[in-house]
Amino acid sequence: MATQATPIVVPTDAELLQAQADLWRHSLYYLKSMALKCAVELGIPTAIYRLGGSASIPDLITALSLPVAKQQFLSRLMRLLASSGVFSVVDSTEATYSLTPLSYLLVDGIEADDHINHAPFLLTVTATHYIDLAMGLAHWFKQDAKKPPFDHVHGASLFEESMERKHPEFHKMAMQGLIVHDNFGTNIALRELSDIYQGINSLTDCCYHGDGMTAKAIVKAFPHMKVTVLDLPQEIRKIPTDGVVNYVGGDMFKSIPRAQVVLLKMVLHHWSDEDCVKILANCKKAIASREEGGKVLIGDIVLDPASEPVMFETQLLMDVCMMLMKGGRQRDLNDWRDIFIKAGFSDFKLVKKFGARGVLEAYP
């Protein structure tokens, strides 16, 4: 029996007017990204920080050595960014702005263990190398292309040596952005989730173009633990040996150094489900039995429609981001369950939500 067509409901006048405003907003969302990029390139977050935490538009014009004639335009830029939560308004009369937690992440030069300047990530995903992917997305869908959009457009793979040869400056920034993306939150996790590390005697950290920072933080928090870092040989050669962490050059698709526990932090979202199953199967071979405390720890985005709308939108944007860049994906709990089962694990659980991410444990 043919499915009956759903009757078309003609929107009301009020709905159409609201729809037009919504269409304007969605069509111009990119201007928020570009305004934020502009603010970072001008050094506005750092300038506000150095001016004591708040600054007027004239203060910023002076601190940034901008032409006085640009004052009215800077005011409009800051007004937009403040409405988006990038800055907060201290005094609307004097147009004075202060940092928010978001813009604090973009301050350069803060000497604190927990602070990582996120500018490299922002500047990577707002660069023309990346914007071009989004601009050509409809064309990519029409092509019988098995490669992700990035490889299809640039003829090279993001984060890999092929991109370094073609566009060394962008590659350098992208690698810095990847490290920022992967390393942020490590110390917060070690404080808030210290219980999941209790009883672990040995751990292998499977990295994807890492710098060893996570492993060093784990050893600092748990000096008794034997920690090994596995990464590609060319990446391992870049990390200075410290006599504390064991660094091994290899390939997680082939084998993983044995340990009681294997850690995969912000790794699996780079890969397809089939590739993730291969990686996880090798993890299962490397860890101890469940009775001996064997498990795989995963830190990655867990899509959750029950999250508040802005957080869920962030997760979905990161999903399309991975689709464009690496052909990977973000996963909900059912997706995670499927790849764990296919890799031979007996059970898993979501330990805790962690910002836009989640911490999962998979058991052999």
Rank of each mutant, 00 (worst) to 15 (best):
M1T: 13
M1P: 11
Q4S: 11
Q4L: 10
P7K: 03
P7C: 01
V9L: 09
V10H: 10
T12L: 03
A14K: 11
E15P: 07
L16S: 13
Q18C: 02
A21L: 12
L23A: 12
W24T: 10
H26F: 14
L28T: 11
K32M: 06
M34D: 12
A35S: 15
A39M: 04
V40W: 01
V40M: 09
E41R: 09
A47V: 04
R50D: 11
L51S: 00
G53F: 03
S54K: 14
S56Y: 01
A63S: 10
L64G: 03
L64N: 02
L66W: 00
V68Y: 04
V68P: 05
A69Y: 06
A69V: 14
L74K: 05
R76N: 10
M78A: 06
R79Q: 14
L80C: 04
S84Q: 12
F87W: 10
V90E: 14
T93K: 14
T93R: 10
A95E: 12
T100E: 01
S103W: 01
Y104N: 09
L105M: 15
L105N: 13
D108F: 11
G109Y: 04
G109I: 07
D113S: 12
H115C: 08
N117W: 08
N117E: 15
H118C: 15
T124N: 02
A127R: 05
T128G: 03
T128Q: 11
D132R: 10
L133C: 08
G136Q: 15
A138E: 11
F141Q: 08
P149C: 06
F150G: 03
H154T: 04
H154Q: 02
A156E: 05
L158K: 00
S162G: 06
K172C: 15
M175C: 03
L178M: 14
I179K: 10
V180E: 15
D182P: 01
D182M: 09
F184P: 00
A189Y: 05
D195N: 11
I196M: 01
I196D: 03
Y197E: 04
S202F: 10
L203Y: 03
Y208A: 11
A215D: 00
K216H: 06
K216C: 09
K226V: 08
V227P: 05
V227R: 00
V227W: 07
L230R: 04
Q234R: 12
R237T: 13
I239S: 05
T241F: 12
V245S: 03
G249C: 07
D251K: 09
P257C: 00
P257N: 05
P257W: 01
L264D: 05
M266Y: 06
K278I: 14
I279M: 07
A281S: 14
N282Y: 08
C283L: 06
K284N: 07
K284C: 04
K285D: 14
S289G: 14
R290N: 10
R290H: 09
R290V: 09
G294Y: 02
G294T: 07
V296C: 01
L297C: 01
I298E: 04
L303D: 05
A306H: 12
P309V: 06
V310P: 00
M311Y: 08
F312T: 00
F312P: 01
E313S: 14
T314V: 14
T314Q: 13
L317M: 15
M318S: 14
C321E: 11
M322L: 13
G327W: 00
R329N: 11
R329Q: 15
L333D: 01
N334Y: 09
D338G: 02
K342I: 02
F345I: 04
F345G: 00
F354G: 02
A356H: 00
A362R: 06
Y363Q: 09
P364N: 08
